[in-house]
């Protein structure tokens, strides 16, 4: 204590704000705070304000949302598609991560690069590619017709199937990486040990490898599910009228109807839905796992 008191007066003697350690530390955080404020706090609060004041305080936009069956149905569809596309991304992504974990380094790096590359291709391009593949005269239908497996082309586009295919394709990399990184942290000797102790390959997977990879599944699923809730391009391009999600409604309100307050209310509802999912995840799995703080 004595020593601390001896040091402290130096600051008051110089008197300058610039020389206080606390201030110096604060300066370092300023850019981050500024970015946080400009990119998150300001836009979100302005949306919140727009949805609640016009110009007096009102809940009419929220009441309108609740009263109109169409909107709750869209919210329900949004959830449905989000759950389904998360699950299908998991089904596709998990085996990829599993195989990558066990691949030779060269093979592994090649495929990791390929997956990373898919991040860099525009969403729009990827969705349009699916239109070419899935349309009535597209690759899938022509091949099936040519092989004589079907008489008339399947409807693969502008329905739930089209949306699911498109969204799964986009989400797979997002789900592969968290699972892969968790798997990299699992000692492969554990699998050897399980086999040595009498477990078949199948038992080894279900009792050891799978439970240990659950944090990765949780993190990937959360990430993808939250992205899916706000997804917009894929349902717009590959979905039909029945597959429009809440973001598409927001777009219509903003672009076509110029109803900004209602669009803001819809955005707030979407944000709340996202926060609810996040809270549930945090309650049962712990958010710190998302940032790699895996508890073992």
């Amino acid at each position: 204590m004595e020593a601390a008191e001896n040091i402290m007066p130096v600051e008051s003697a110089s008197g300058s704000l610039w020389h206080r350690p606390a201030f110096k530390q604060f300066i370092l955080v300023v850019p981050a705070l500024l970015a946080l404020f400009l990119l998150f706090v300001y836009p979100i609060s302005s949306i919140l304000i727009k949805s609640l004041f016009s110009p007096e305080f009102t809940l009419k936009h929220y009441l309108y949302f609740l009263k109109t069956p169409l909107y709750s149905r869209v919210l329900w569809i949004t959830f449905q598609i989000s759950v389904l596309s998360t699950l299908s991304a998991l089904v596709v992504g998990y085996p990829i991560a599993y195989v990558l974990r066990r691949a030779r380094p060269g093979v592994r790096n090649f495929f990791l690069l390929a997956i990373t590359l898919s991040f860099m291709i525009s969403l729009l391009v990827r969705n349009y590619s699916w239109i070419i593949v899935l349309q009535r005269s597209g690759v899938v239908n022509s091949v099936l017709t040519y092989l004589g497996l079907i008489d008339s082309p399947f409807k693969l586009l502008h329905n739930k199937l089209g949306v699911m295919v498109g969204m799964t394709h986009i989400f797979v990399p997002y789900i592969v990486f968290p699972i892969y990184s968790v798997m990299m942290g699992i000692d492969l000797n554990l699998e050897k040990a399980a086999q040595n102790l009498g477990a078949s390959r199948w038992q080894t997977f279900w009792r050891i490898s799978f439970p240990l990879s659950l944090p990765g599944i949780g993190a990937g699923a959360l990430l993808v599910f939250i992205m899916a809730l706000g997804f917009f391009i894929t349902p717009a391009l590959l979905g039909g009228r029945k597959e429009q999600m809440i973001s598409n409604l927001i777009q219509i309100q903003v672009v076509d109807l110029l109803n900004w307050p209602f669009a803001s209310a819809l955005s707030v509802i979407l944000l709340l839905a996202t926060l609810v999912v996040f809270a549930i995840y945090n309650r049962y799995l712990g958010v710190e796992r998302l940032w790699g703080g895996v508890k073992t």
Binding site: K192, A193, Q195, G198, A199
Partner: peptide, 15 residues
């Protein structure tokens, strides 16, 4: 898993 030979691993490999 069909050999019935036990093993202790270097880093223990406890689950």
């Amino acid at each position: 898993n069909d050999r019935g030979i036990g093993m202790v691993f270097q880093n223990y490999a406890l689950f």
